[in-house]
Design a protein around this nucleic acid. Structure first.
Lengths: 335, 335
DNA sequence: CCATTGCTTGTGTACGTTCACATTCTCAAC
DNA sequence: GTTGAGAATGTGAACGTACACAAGCAATGG
């Protein structure tokens, strides 16, 4: 007498025990309106009693709807992306969807292809992209992906339909303008990697602000979002002290840069003012507390989902851009 | 003439075009040994040509295997959990599994139940838990979950089979001992929240080390992992300067605490030495750079997956504990 | 009292795949 | 040339659900 593998109960088991047809059970599950209250209750009782769970695979098979949203992210543990993913997960869950996350190891084309391929094989109904988007977008077009998708940051690429935009250009402008307002005229910028759309947008905002103020434009340094990069770039840059303010593409690089400042015997904001971007929770506790641009990552995630869900239902929603916000702390001071 | 919705190609379409039976195609897909090379190639050609993708739902239905690993995480964007999740995803993908992530909003019982319920409904074959584990473990038992599961941190709860352990107790000992070796005798500890097993383990390591050295034991402060908490707890603690060293349960709280030190006019490590835990990438760039305990989060994730996969195949692997490592930086100094 | 309507329930079928079993083919050994 | 074994391929089920349609039932109106 083996403890023989018990089959999980199915819809017919429920039906038998409740004394109805399987179709009636199906109706209860799908909240069909025409079902007598007593019958419904009887079915529900049986369901909880025997611990029945609808088989998602069977459901997906017959409806050809996976109720799954794919999330494609860069292999990063950064605060922003992580926060957004969590928000996406919650919003999706509330709408009866689940998410499946795939991260890409590098931004190489094959890596992206493999990741997209896996997502498609899982029959995702929609796609959220949080990654080096330029290349990913290319891959999406090339693979003829026809599910609704959305990229999580501002893209000024004529892809308005597929973009959940925080106005990063405006955010970067805000940051740069803040430095200008403090009287700085020589402002450096360390940006994110080349193929990140948001890096590009922030750089654009910086350039716009500097140009509008008729200040000297300096070639931004292309970084990789890490504090390490900020540190080493800082050590290099500070050998020539020909600037008095720095706008970093994110808070981590700002942190690294400030570290380089102390190591070079310079004070922030005494000698150099620093502005970051993102407002990660730690930024308020940096030394000195970092002036930065706050982004509502959770809100972006939520909106991305609602945008996709709307598209799945054939409706369109006009999404207002989310405006980022300047948070002034002690890392910036008047010249 | 509508552009009528084209049905995705199925296994029979492939079979027809390749001039074989659908079962032959199935064999090609599942790498059955007895299949002629020429036939196999013909089938593969057709597959790539028409862009056929096996329907996972149908597969899951008939095999009753979802090839999905569920990940239950706390709603946190912290470096550690995020890194582990990414590693889990990669390891799972290599083994032909995918992951589905669900995060719990609060550590309330219902919240945990809902999350677990969603995971079970998705028929996950295994479960990784990165969350306030004490309560989650209770829920797992209560719901009679019978899939293999693993918690991602050390649990000294007689659950060795289900634990992917980094030896956190040892790590905390290491941190505390480092302070003792530097001559400190009054050492405070800010720990993580009550129901996190890892918080508990770190506290245990601290207490062990302090006891073994016959030092005064101080009641640890229960924190919430955030820099904010570290800051405010620090402001409070520093009103009585009756300690010379602090071991924080993670790097964020250490950062907040150091912030409180500057605000209180104290120098780190001049007046107070600080040790963190985790070695997040930013820790090397704190002011001063933080002495901390490095954990290999990615390795934990990988091992968790291999543990689960082994269990699914009925084999058992003995997992050596991963030992954390002390990284000495400038936030600690001899008394 | 019967026809009509709307609510409630039941029956057949399809979704796309794999498994168990059956069949055909190939080649070597007697 | 026959037999047999193993390789290669094919046929009929089954997985658990939702949809289309059919049918039963009660209430309403004439």
């Amino acid at each position: 007498m083996e403890p023989e593998k018990v089959r999980a109960p199915n819809i017919r088991d429920v039906a038998r025990l409740a004394g109805v047809s399987y179709q009636t059970v199906s109706r209860v599950l799908n909240e069909h309106p025409s079902i007598r209250e007593t019958t419904k209750q009887r079915v529900l009782d049986v369901i909880t009693e025997i611990g029945y769970r609808p088989n998602q695979a069977a459901r997906a098979l017959v409806t050809s709807r996976s109720r799954t949203i794919g999330v494609l992210t860069a292999q990063t543990a950064d605060y922003g992306p992580s926060t957004s993913v969590t928000a996406i997960e919650h919003a999706a869950r509330e709408a009866g969807y689940r998410i499946t996350v795939t991260s890409i190891a590098s931004s190489e084309y094959t890596s992206i292809r493999v990741a997209l391929d896996q997502l498609l094989t899982q029959a995702v109904e929609a796609l959220v992209v949080i990654a080096p988007q330029v290349r990913v977008l290319e891959a999406i077009r090339e693979l003829h992906i026809d599910v609704p998708y959305v990229t999580l940051q501002n893209a000024d690429m004529g892809e308005a339909d597929h973009t959940m935009s925080i106005d990063q250009v405006a955010g970067a402008r805000l940051a740069t303008q803040h430095l200008i307002d403090l009287g700085h005229t020589e402002i450096m910028h360390i940006s994110g990697p080349r193929d990140w759309i948001e890096a590009d947008a922030r750089m654009q905002g910086y350039l716009n602000a500097v140009n509008d103020a008729d200040l000297r434009t300096r070639a931004p340094i292309l970084g990789d979002w890490t504090a390490h990069f900020g540190y080493y770039a800082g050590l290099e840059l500070l050998r020539f002290r020909d600037f008095t303010a720095l706008f970093a593409g994110n808070d981590q690089m700002a942190l690294g840069f400030m570290h380089a400042c102390w190591d070079s015997g310079l004070s922030v904001p005494g000698d150099i003012s620093v502005v970051g971007f993102d407002d990660i929770p730690e930024a308020a506790h940096f030394y000195p507390p970092l002036t930065t641009i706050r982004q509502n990552f959770a809100e972006i995630g939520r909106r991305a989902v609602s945008l996709l869900l709307a598209e799945l239902q054939g409706t369109r929603v006009d999404q207002a851009q989310i405006t980022p916000e300047l948070v002034v702390r002690r890392s910036t001071a008047a010249l």
